[in-house]
Amino acid sequence: MAEKNRDFVKGLWEENPVFVMLLGMCPVLAVTSTATNGLFMGLATSFVLFGAGIVNSLLQNIIPDEVRIPSFIVVIATFVTIVDLVSRAYFPGIAEQLALFIPLIIVNCLILNRSEAFASNVNVLRAIIDALGRGLGFTWALTFLGGIREILGFGTLFRGTESVIQVLGEWYQPMLIAILPAGAFITLGIVVALFNVIMDESFSIKDLFGGTAAVEKEQTA
């Protein structure tokens, strides 16, 4: 049981696909201009991850090794097509905004990696737990990034839905750059750097900008 817990937590935090492993960067940057888009993209990806994980785990003994990767892609593409059709039918607004990036889930490194490196080597239960962990890890990361950018860029959270929250008051002048491409890169860069700091076990405030290592070197020199 402990192992399964670990599988789950790993994906959420210590091996977070976005902030630690830096996988599937394209959608991470492209769709996180609002928390809504981030959340939806995260869920869509999680669904494919989940489905592909189960199927690939079940098929692990059936698929011959030579055609492993192509088969994975077919399986993934099938689930992506499902997501695509469903989202276009039920969430046309968001699907419109995400446009290209729903089909591009097919080539998301994260899903391919989990299929290849994990799901096809373990039993279905572990594959499911892993997919849930990674999927949620991916989803919260996207929502988090989308949230930051949306708050800075619009002053709101979850725009485009009925439960939109006005986080910052009228006084706030929206910072347009946050929702531009440049803002995507910069926000992610800063968050990943912060993650590096937090994940570093010997973390101290001095380390925040890497001072100590350099200073030590100067002193020995």
Binding site: G183, F185, I186, G189, V192, D207, L208, G210, A213
Partner: peptide, 15 residues
Amino acid sequence: PKPLKGAPITLLVAG
């Protein structure tokens, strides 16, 4: 700075 080395600085430059 150390925490920025690697991916973060690359992302920032890309930004």
